[in-house]
Structure formats: structure tokens, C-alpha cells
Design a protein around this nucleic acid. Sequence first.
RNA 1: GGCCUUAUCGUCUAACGGUUAGGACGGAGCCCUCUCAAGGCUCAAAUACGGGUUCGAUUCCCGUUAAGGCUACCA
Length: 482
Amino acid sequence: MPPIRVRFAPSPTGYLHVGGLRTALYNYLFARKNKGTFVLRIEDTDRTRLVDGAVENLIATLSWAGLTFDEGPTVGGNFGPYVQSERLEIYRDHARKLLSQGKAYYAFDTPEELEEMRKTQEKMRVPPKYDRRALRLSETEVKSKLDAGVPHVVRMKIPETSTIVVDDIVRGRVEFVSDRLDDQILLKSDGFPTYHLANVVDDHLMGITHVIRGEEWLSSTPKHVLLYEYFSWEMPAFAHLPLLLNPDKSKLSKRQGDVAVEDYRQKGYFPEALLNFVALLGWNPGDERELFNLETLVDEFSLERVGKSGAVFNLEKLQWMNTQHLRLMTDDQLFGLLEPYLEKAHLGSLHREYVLKVIHLMKERVDRVEEFISFGGYFFADPESYDNQAKKKNWKPESSTYLTEAISSIRGLNTYDEKSIEDVVRTIAERHGVGAGKLIHPLRLALTGLGMGPGLFELMAVLGKETCLRRLERALARLVEH
RNA sequence: GGCCUUAUCGUCUAACGGUUAGGACGGAGCCCUCUCAAGGCUCAAAUACGGGUUCGAUUCCCGUUAAGGCUACCA
């Protein structure tokens, strides 16, 4: 058996779609699992959709996700170039070959003429399909148009009636009748190939053994199968992955939420969590485990366990998964990830030890790294305001008395730690014959402005004596005001 | 319209033809508790419909319905 080679072949549209990420992941997993090669190929044959910097961004995003490829742009390989726009001669050669064998033909129709044709077909309610008018041209007519430089395309000649079988690893045997297929354009008038030609030629030339791609390609696979036959090439194995869906079950798209991997990266999701999540959209290990990292996914992955039905991209589960991955990280790892966010919030000068303590306290309360800052603002700045609901619930007329007593007791404290703070608070509560909660909640409100958060005594110890006293005094003045 | 695909809790999914149809997210409740989380426990929630085949269908076959994909000189 030849060594396994798979590829991820995105077109550089500016960002990496999460569906693309999953396709890339499955290809990667399949390659690693089978000691094969993972190739990245850029399909940039549509020059009308070129986006500046898209390739660089794609590679950067893939690298952020940890999906390293063995061959491709920037890393090279023996089957390059890996960018289709650099392979134009190859496609033209192959188109010529088909032409010379009568398996393809020149067509000189203008886009307007084709549009006209389609309109008529629609009116007559027949399936839109090229009517092969170019085939009625005589050899000399074709030659003279060619010589005159009339813009033209090369079309694939589909057999009249034959059954084309696609053998798919996830879907089984799928049959197509050839007369339903259009005489697909292989080479556009600008000399660039269409997907169908470029894809088949490259997959063959690059020794691709398994074509793993989204289900949206299933319908055009018979054309690809035909091309392999026309060239007398060995067919790769096909595996068409179920689609990723919007909540309304349509194909996952923009306008119904974020679809770019970059969006999730920017929001602070971990690459492992995103990967773990999309891995489970269409695949499962066969048992009830669902937390994986890249290595364990490699160990468990198989195309046989890929499902057939589309999967809704469920944000809530992704969030949960991110939380799970966050919990698995050490405080140190989280510090490393938090640093850039601290810089951005102008908190870069904070002591590492302090931030580590904050992380420790907040770890169970956040789902994403940036939430250490957005949820834990009071660790970095005095509260600007006091949450109304919390105030209503926890601030009683007698609270200021308790607060005042707490302030003076705390001021007298020589050792300021969790234990001593707790003693002070509980002593005051006992003295008044009330539950400690009568002190704890107002204190938290005064210190953080919020009615929720980490345990009060730990919180106070981390904030430090000076900060606590300052905030308490300030709060006392402001909370009694109204 | 045509071709193709798909169909188990709201969502992701498990179940070599024989299970009280399992797990997870989310939801509800309880416990823990200084709050919020986290954690633990419990509950509600599904085989689209109709025919076959079979002693027995979630599972195999056919049909219906529904959803989706494709139907470009886009990928």
C-alpha cells in the first residue's frame, strides 16, 4: 500500500472558516494516525476573489490551531509548487491532452450568451445545462476563432449516458447518471483552471490517496471521477464530511454568527478547545469520552466513525468545552495566555505573583482568558460604582455600623491573611449576634462593587490591607449617601 | 424544477436486529455554601410518518414528509 497522503485545499478568501478548520483537522488526524503526509495546497484560481494577505493569515491561523502541515507553501516539499496560481502551465497541458483526445472541447460563448441560454431553459422549465452549441462548430471554424484570438474556454465532454459510481468512505456507494451532468468548464477564458480540473490534476500529481472534504463537493465528485478516468489515473479514496450547520440547519455561514476561526481566537477560545469541539461535530470515539487534545484525537480518530448527518455548531457546548480546557491548565499556563490581554488593558506592569493569585481565585469562574480581566476588574482597579441589585439585597441600615467596626479592626491587624481577616469578621458578627453573612455581603459589595465573586476572605487577602481599607472607607461614604 | 445527501432528546451524539433507547451541552430542582461559580445528586426531554422483511426493528428494504447540498468562466 502506498504511503497515505492527504491535503487540505482551501481557497484564500481572507479567513479560515470553522468548517474548513474541521476539514483540516480530520485530514491532519487521518495523516498522523496513519503515519502519512499532510499537505496544504492553496486553491487560488479565482482571481476575482483574491484577498490580500489571505494565505499568510490562513497559515498563521492553522499554526495557531496547531495543525502543522508537512508540505505546502512556506515549507516546500517534493510536489510543489503548492499554490495553484503557480501551476497554470500544468493545467493547460492537461487540458490540451483532453482536447487532443476529444474528451474536452473549445467553446467561444460569451457570458451574456450563456446567461441568455439559461434564461430560455428556465422559461422552458428544463434543467439548466450547457447545450453544446460549441460542438456544432467545424474544425476550421474552431481553428480560425482560435487564431483570431477569440476568448474561449475549454469544456469537459460528459458521456451521453453512463452511470458513474462514487465510492465514499462515509457515504458508501453513490450513483450518478451522466446525462444530468453539465459539460463543466475546465479552463476559463482567463487561462485559469476551474476547481474541477485543478483539483483532480493536483491531487493526482501530488500523490493524494484520500480526498477528505465537505459534503458540498459530493455532487461534483462524478465529474472528478470522470476526469480520473479520462486521464487513466488511479482514483483516490473519497470521504465526504457532513456539513456544519447554522442553528436553522442551513450551511454554516456568516450573518448567523461567527464562522471565522480568527473570531474565536480573538474571543479567547483555546485552540485545543475549538479543535476538540469541531472534532466532535461529525465524529465520536465510540465511547463516552469527549475531552481530547490533539494527541489523543490522533490516537482515536478514524474515518469509519465519521457520521453522515449535518451538525449544528452549538456555541454553548463550545463554551463549556473551553471551560473544561481552561480548568485543565495550570495557573502558570494561564498567566502566559493572559499576559497579552493585560498588556492591552495597560496592566502589564502588575506583579506576576499578584496576577497568579487572581488567576487562582478566578479560575473556577471564567470560561475564557479575557474574562479574568472583564469579570475580575476589581482586582485591578477600585470599583467605580456599586451594583444596584446587590446593594438592594445586601446593604442594610446597620451595615455601615458593621463596616465601620470592620475597618478599625482590620486597621489594627498585624498579620493580614485569610485566617486573621476571617477571625475579625466573625468576631464582629458574634458581638452583634448576627450571622457572618451580614458582614460578608456588604464587605464584598464595598470592596468589589458586586454581589458575587470569590470567597471574601481569600479575596481580601489577595487585595491587601491598604487596598481593602481604602475601598471600605470610600464605600462607606458612598453607600450611605442614598 | 432536476440531481444528490440526510433524518435518535432543543443541540452534539451512542446503541454487531433483542437495552428500562445511554452519555454530553443547555434547562429545571436539590445538596454544598458568605455570594457567584465549581462540584455532587435528581428530573424533564428523542428513534419524523406509513408500509413491508423478521419471532423481534432505532437498526434492513420501499414509499411519504421534512431539512440540507449542488445545479457559475466560485471554491
